[in-house]
Design a protein around this nucleic acid. Structure first.
Length: 809
RNA sequence: GCCCGGGUGGUGAAAUGGUAGACACAAGGGACUUAAAAUCCCUCGACCGCAAGGUCAUGCGAGUUCGAGUCUCGCCCCGGGCACCA
């Protein structure tokens, strides 16, 4: 017979699938139960598909093919997260339009994905950079705007002086401009925000970003990352009345148990009271410090500088716990945009402690460690060491002797009675800054009129099309601002002269709602029709990289919650089940990277081994979510496995041996169960065990047919080819998933493990339904067992039916 | 510092509290071949033993249990995320 030749077989079947798209298309009219199986859509980079893409796409492809065969109406689409910075940077360098580069890349990605035999419903392909798509991105902006969830305000942004542009946080990592390596500074600019903070907690009947996590089948690490990012903390606000003033300083603290040792106050340099309270003799120093902080780069300000700098304002305030007069300082380690922008400082915080030591500010101790270490306490008491953990209160009046946890609510209540404190919850999450001074994104659909001010573009006028007559060179303003055709416009309200908003939206806005568009991607009246939303959503299985733990997954949840809260949809979480694929490392165990020259290109692997080998190899390497190193020998081994499957055609027998008959049934069960649990590696090993056995004793045509069926989600090309050779006229993918015969799965005989005192001493072949007495009788017949129990009294018998007998002597 | 994962042969890894190392890769030996490739067969955690068999062994130390890779507590190491958040 001819050899297994993947190249020809794969090309042949890919063409067949291309010509028979109904095999993989989701059916809007069908009343079968639905499954929406989704990949995180890729950014079409110039580098092309990565083996990591192959891993997650294969996993969802196997799941999709399996559920189709199980009689489900499966929606499994793919598309392009097409706006983004790399294409624009390339345009700045070369002058080639981002649209051109992006679409060349999409073409390449499409070719690569199709060469892997993925069963996407390509009729639903979307491209976020197309006006048909971003029309609805803009619609969402207006929807949020109309409902008070999009607003404009002045904000600090990352600014690069040499590039003359605002940078996204991702571009300003470590406080250094990604493009020119210059230091990034903070600049105040008018920016658009989405009010994501409105949805942290439950909002009417919409579950919050925090509580909503509890009901999701997501990796614990991703849920933890989101909770972390939201950063809910429980504490109190406390008012410190200023001396010689009617003003008071409100601080936020989670450690009110330390308030009796609060010996000074620190304000953020941007705090509204700084100018007002600074005394004449401190004015110069304070103004100088505020100026310095403004000029400081993000790097300098957040650097792990141990020596906390600051300056005294000359003002004093009254500690409401002990009426002591304490000095007010400013320092830029206190953040203006968290809590109240002011803290009380004491000996029980490392930073406060260090700053006080530096300037000789008095300190006091109010917490003693709970454990009895006299030496340590001696040091803390003498202010040689900072104790920042909870402990037992001292020097705290009537609260002495309480633990920190006991004292906190009591102290709040006590100060609250004087009207100077209240319980307060704080979050780290801030509203989402969505404006970007960039070209390659969806334009923000707002017009500024001289008379009417800020005016929303009427929805009927959408999309606001991205102009082409622009210069990509950054000037400090969005490139859209210097497009005459774009910029000047008539006001939709009064018809007077007006100008368009020239910022575009963060690309994460485009990807926050794309899972809605696949279900109705041609709809020109709505982002998706109501009955289709009800039919298909939410997404049943979502697979992608863990790098999207917070941003994308949080933003997408916010969009869904806003839609739900405003009565548009009936569910408030977009992705019910989420799985992350682990990183595929290079053969040397390091990350694959261009600079290390250790990147494996899927094209090469397909050319040498074939797509089926690559797919099975990536699934066989280990658990989906684990990081695993590439191993070229491993893919060679998988290719051998497929060759052996191929040669089984020559080992067809007239009748199945008893072992094969039962093994085929067991394998059907195991492979199905494992696919449902996404344990693809063990599903493949089960198939290998069957192939090993069939190779030895052969199998019938019918058993081979069953095997090829369960293999088909993993290796679709070879499965189609053998399926055809077995005399089936139709594609393997129109056939149903086989049911296993529970009767054939049960073994008649089992190996009974016999232990003495918990150690295995013998293994006996017995009937599967043997009971304890029977097992005991057989075991005591065994010479090996006799040797261990002879002359001893049997004190206990543990019997696990069908498995084990333990004799305790 | 905080929050998540992990530590099992030479390697990737299996294992509802019940035979630790399934399934592979690599390695060694053999068959076939003039030879090689391909294919097939055997060995393959460590130690003792001719063998039968035994002892030890899942990062380290304790505990619970008839029985622990799996559960509990304490520690060590590695990977990832967040980080001046009061």
């Amino acid at each position: 017979m001819e050899q297994y030749e993947p190249k020809g077989i794969e090309a042949k079947w890919q063409k067949y699938w291309e010509n028979n798209p109904e095999l993989y298309s989701a059916d809007n009219a069908s009343d079968k139960p639905k499954k929406y199986i989704l990949d995180m859509f890729p950014y079409p980079s110039a580098a092309g598909l990565h083996v990591g893409h192959v891993e997650s796409y294969t996993a969802t492809d196997i799941a999709s093919r399996y559920w189709r065969a199980k009689g489900f109406n499966v929606l499994h689409p793919q598309g392009w997260d097409a706006f983004g910075l790399p294409a624009e940077n390339y345009a700045i360098k070369t002058g080639v339009h981002p649209d051109k580069v992006t679409h060349e890349n999409i073409k390449n990605f499409t070719r690569q994905i199709k060469s892997l035999g993925m069963s996407y419903d390509w009729s639903r392909e979307i491209d976020t950079s197309s006006p048909e798509y971003y029309k609805w991105t803009q619609w969402f902006f207006l929807f949020l705007y109309e409902n008070g969830l999009a607003y404009k305000k002045k904000a600090k942004v990352n600014w690069c002086d040499s590039c003359q542009t605002v940078l996204a946080n991702e571009q300003a990592e470590g406080g250094i401009c990604e493009r020119c390596k210059n230091a990034v500074v903070q600049k105040d600019l008018e920016q658009w925000f989405f009010k994501i903070t409105d949805f942290i907690e439950n909002n009417k009947d919409t579950s919050g970003l925090l509580d909503g996590l509890d009901k999701l089948d997501w990796p614990e690490s991703i849920k933890a990352a989101q909770r972390n990012w939201i950063g809910k903390s429980f504490g109190a606000e406390v008012d410190f009345v200023l001396e010689n003033s009617t003003e008071k300083i409100t601080v936020y603290t989670t450690r009110i148990d330390t308030i009796f040792s609060g010996t000074y106050i620190i304000l953020a340099p941007e705090h509204r009271l700084v100018e007002k309270i600074t005394t004449a003799e401190n004015k110069a120093a304070v103004e100088g410090y505020v100026e310095e902080s403004k000029k400081k780069t993000e790097l300098e300000r957040t650097g792990l500088e141990k020596n906390k700098g600051g300056v005294f304002t000359g003002a004093y305030a009254i500690n409401p716990a002990n009426q002591e007069k304490i000095p007010v300082w400013i320092s830029d380690f206190v953040l203006a945009n968290y809590g109240t922008g002011a803290v009380f400082a004491d000996a029980h915080d490392e930073r406060d402690f260090a700053m006080a030591k530096k300037y000789g500010i008095p300190l006091k101790v109010s917490i003693r460690p709970q454990d009895e270490d006299g030496n340590k306490w001696e040091k803390i008491k003498n202010l040689e060491e900072c104790h920042s953990d909870d402990g037992i209160l001292v020097n705290s009046g009537q609260f002495d002797g309480l633990t920190s946890a006991e004292a906190r609510p009591k102290i709040i209540e006590w100060i609250a009675a004087k009207g100077l404190a209240r319980k307060m919850v704080n979050y780290r999450l801030r509203d989402w800054l969505v404006s970007r001074q960039r070209y390659w994104g969806a334009p923000i659909p707002i017009i500024y009129c001289d008379k009417c001010g800020e005016v929303a573009v009427p929805k009927g006028d959408l999309p606001v099309v991205l102009p082409t007559d622009v210069d990509f060179k950054p000037t400090g303003e969005s490139p859209l601002a210097n497009s005459k055709t774009f910029h000047d416009v008539k006001c939709p309200k009064c018809g007077g002269s007006a100008r368009r908003e020239s910022d575009t939206m963060d690309t994460f806005v485009c990807s926050s709602w794309y899972y809605f568009r696949y279900i109705d991607h041609m709809n020109n009246m709505e982002f998706a029709a109501q009955e289709k939303i009800q039919k298909w959503l939410p997404v049943d299985l979502y697979v992608g990289g863990a790098e999207h733990a917070v941003l994308h997954l949080l933003y997408a949840r916010f969009f869904t919650k806003a839609l739900h809260n405003l009565g548009h949809i009936g569910f408030d979480e977009p992705f019910l089940k989420l799985r992350n694929q682990g990183m595929i490392l290079a053969e040397d165990g390091r990350k694959m990277s261009k600079s290390l020259g250790n990147v494996v290109n899927p094209d090469d692997a397909v050319a040498v081994f074939g797509a089926d080998s690559l797919r099975i190899f990536e699934m066989f390497m280990g658990p989906l979510e684990d990081a695993k190193p590439w191993n070229t020998q491993g893919i060679v081994g998988v290719k051998r496995f497929l060759e052996r499957i191929w040669r089984l055609q020559e080992k067809i027998t007239d009748e199945d041996g008893k072992s094969i008959r039962s093994l085929v049934q067991k394998t059907i069960k195991k492979v199905g169960d494992d696919i449902e649990m996404m344990k693809f590696n063990t599903a493949i090993s089960a198939m290998m065990i069957l192939v090993n056995e069939a190779e030895k004793i052969g199998m019938t045509r019918e058993s081979y047919r069953l095997f090829v069926k369960i293999l088909s989600p993993f290796a679709p090309h070879i499965a189609e080819e053998i399926w055809g050779k077995l005399g089936n006229a139709e594609s393997v993918f129109v056939s149903a998933w086989p049911d296993y015969d529970p009767g054939l799965i049960k073994d008649e005989e089992i190996n009974l493990v016999v232990q003495v005192n918990g150690k295995m001493r013998d293994m006996l072949k017995v009937g599967a339904d043997i009971d304890q007495d029977g097992a005991k009788a057989v075991a005591l017949e065994s010479e090996k067992i006799k040797a261990y129990v002879a002359g001893k009294e049997i004190r206990k018998i543990i019997f696990v039916p069908g498995k084990l007998l333990n004799i305790v002597v």
